[in-house]
Nucleic acid binder design. Structure first.
Lengths: 239, 239
DNA sequence: CCGCCGCATTGACCTGGGTTATCGGCCACG
DNA sequence: CGTGGCCGATAACCCAGGTCAATGCGGCGG
């Protein structure tokens, strides 16, 4: 199942066979995480990283009144907390939005891996920088895009990211989240997400129902979202 | 002037004398950047990084209609584009908000530095992860905080970050930005920023006028912002 | 088979923040 | 030493999205 992770890495850089072997050897064990479980709590000292093999997890922060902001969604192939390798503790929580399977990688092994292969240090450094790029695009959405464009943009992003690891067809993808989950990504209320999903559906752009996203008009969807995948750094380039 | 950068690094980790010498040696040249100049444009291939020595720069993205979202502010001591070392091009623009002085560091030298000192690779990796943590906190602001809390939070963040590099007193700091600049950080309009600054002033929390921030009630300001500096990782810990 | 319960849907109404516009102060520049 | 442009301040009005409430419905434990 680590294949999706390698797909993600190889979409952006060359990974040699030796490096691949070293990456495969780094996983200590696999684990299942039930839906809705808070998997990592902020400010707890960590000594492992978590590679998501299946399911959807999210990073989120919340306010005292309980309002929650999801800051990034993670899909299979993503390290959900690679930044803990240098941060040592996280400034946010991580939870499973669906039932998940994860692989545990001790920091110690990442240390060895990156000291033995400085190139992989840069590949993984790139990985955390990619997360930051996604954060920036979300900041743009949250600060400036209208509700409909925000939703459209998120659905575009997931289409591309899931497609990269073989989890989307050319028509759509599975997304077993609730409208409330989406609202927490988008800085909106569930009610308004529902209204805007209806609008996108009526415009023939996308349909989101029973855990599945149907892309009806990819060009049109990208247009109203002002989506360009450039921030996902899909080109292969040596680090 | 690279001292502020070392202050920033040493607030979070040990930097040996040998490492310090290596860091100092890495700067190729200094440059001045006039206010309002777009210093780096998105999607342009880069082979240097830029260390901000003086002034304030920002990263921003914008929409077709010209609405702009600043995704992070940079102060003296920050690398404004360290992520370009692994990303090779940026997904956003970088501009000077005030007259600035920067030091140019070729990627090549960062490559040598990080291969020679794997510890510094982790220190700088940490640096970009810190930027991501700031992005996440801004996502929370943009998605969930009220306008007044958002402004208060930004002013708190800058107080701490500037204090760290010796650019704040216990009463406040210089911040030669316009209300429009703040609005672009906060996902608000300049008019509303003006209204909310008035409110914060009348509540005796902060005053922002003629390029200077006066903290009138630090406890109260943090309280309404729900500010906690934990996301700035101010503890010293070896990477 | 029943009764919850979580989720989606929709309508009616409200409000935080946006929009537009005007005015005054400051200062760089001719 | 005018004057035009930028910035801050404020007022009047507007609207995107929030709030509140009711309904429906599918899955599931008992």
């Amino acid at each position: 199942m680590i294949e999706r992770h390698l797909l993600k890495l190889r979409a952006r850089d060359e990974i040699s066979d030796e490096e691949e072997r070293a990456i495969r050897a780094v996983v200590a064990r696999a684990e299942e995480v039930p839906a809705d479980k808070v998997y990592i709590r902020h400010d707890v000292l960590l000594d492992t990283c978590t590679l998501l093999l299946d399911g959807i997890m999210c990073r989120y922060k919340d306010l005292r009144n309980g309002e929650r902001q999801i800051t990034e969604l993670h899909v299979a192939g993503d390290f959900v907390d690679l930044h803990s390798f240098t941060l040592k503790r996280l400034d946010h929580d991580i939870m499973a939005l669906t039932p998940c399977v994860v692989a545990i990688v001790p920091h110690e092994r990442i240390l060895e891996l990156t000291e033995r292969f400085p190139h992989l240090a840069r590949v993984y450094w790139f990985g955390t920088n990619l997360d930051a790029a996604i954060h920036r695009e979300w900041e743009l959405s949250l600060g400036r895009r209208t509700a409909a464009a925000r939703i459209a943009h998120l659905l575009c992003e997931l289409f591309v990211r899931l497609g990269l690891v073989g989890l989307a067809t050319n028509k759509g993808y599975d997304l077993p989240l609730t409208q409330t989950d989406l609202a927490e990504c988008l800085g909106l209320t569930p009610v308004h997400v529902n209204r805007m999903l209806k609008e996108l559906r009526e415009q023939g752009l996308v349909e989101f129902a029973s855990g599945h996203v149907d892309i009806r008009n990819w060009e049109g969807l990208q247009r109203i979202a002002e989506f360009s995948p450039s921030y996902l750094y899909l080109e292969r380039r040596s680090r």
